[in-house]
Design a protein around this nucleic acid. Structure first.
Lengths: 135, 135
DNA sequence: ACGTATTTGTACGTATGTATC
DNA sequence: AGATACATACGTACAAATACG
């Protein structure tokens, strides 16, 4: 059983989320690998499944994990793409297709950025892990 | 009791969300006014409070409403601001202050855009209801 | 092709805490 | 202080998606 303080003013689900985040950053839960199941985590932390789901939901909002129904919750391999704006470039945004949602490991509702450069193929980036810069 | 189909393949909380959204658009729930309380809605729709909260959470994600602990859930008066980018302008983004969260009716976690034009006061816009354009 | 086990999703209920009025 | 409203947390049950033998 893990270190949860039910008396703390910080909600249990946030404590759990922080613990899982730390585990991800410590390498215990690896990118592209699933977290333990909700039931497993529930037992490990000694909290209700509801609480685990809130914790995971919070991490999903932050873009750290991504949940797939019937399969599990996976640690996102997230690298921020940095795009330097140059003359003639165009960047547009649109909802991700299902295929993009899968290959880019996007949470539901996350958009993609389409980067168009003259004479090149358009590039599609995850909207929640891209940075646009201008000199 | 309202029109909920528990056999439908669309989840109850989405049906409730749709019904509330329709009520907002039909003017039954007005901008800047609170929705009925969760307990009231629970009785009106004949579902669990949990389900009402999911429905409201969904609407909050869409930016249609905003929930304030201890007070209620309010219909957002949302107008999309359109900003035309011109030479010399700068737009930056940052987390909303508490004051901005209140006056701009922002959900938690929504950022604001700061629009700076030479020789003018900076303008602060809600990040979830602003559109930046370039000719 | 089919059933079974696993995992997440939804929905219900109940209790208690915290914020606001 | 008391009433009202949202927030968190517990529990339970079943449905739906997936994976596998």
């Amino acid at each position: 059983m893990r270190e949860i303080d039910h008396q703390s003013e910080v909600p249990v689900y946030r404590q759990v989320a922080a613990a899982i985040r730390d585990d991800i950053q410590a390498g215990r839960f690896r990118p592209r690998r699933p977290l333990p199941s909700e039931v497993h985590l529930q037992q490990e932390f000694g909290v209700a499944r509801d609480t685990i789901r809130r914790a995971i939901g919070h991490l999903a909002e932050l873009g750290l994990v991504r949940t797939v129904p019937g399969r599990g919750t996976f640690v996102r391999a997230l690298e921020v793409s940095v795009v330097e704006m140059e003359p003639g470039m165009r960047i547009t945004a649109r909802p991700a297709s299902e295929a993009e949602q899968a290959t880019l490991e996007l949470a539901e509702g996350v958009w993609v950025l389409v980067v168009e450069r003259p004479g090149r193929e358009p590039e599609v980036l995850p909207g929640d892990a891209a940075e646009i810069r201008v000199e």
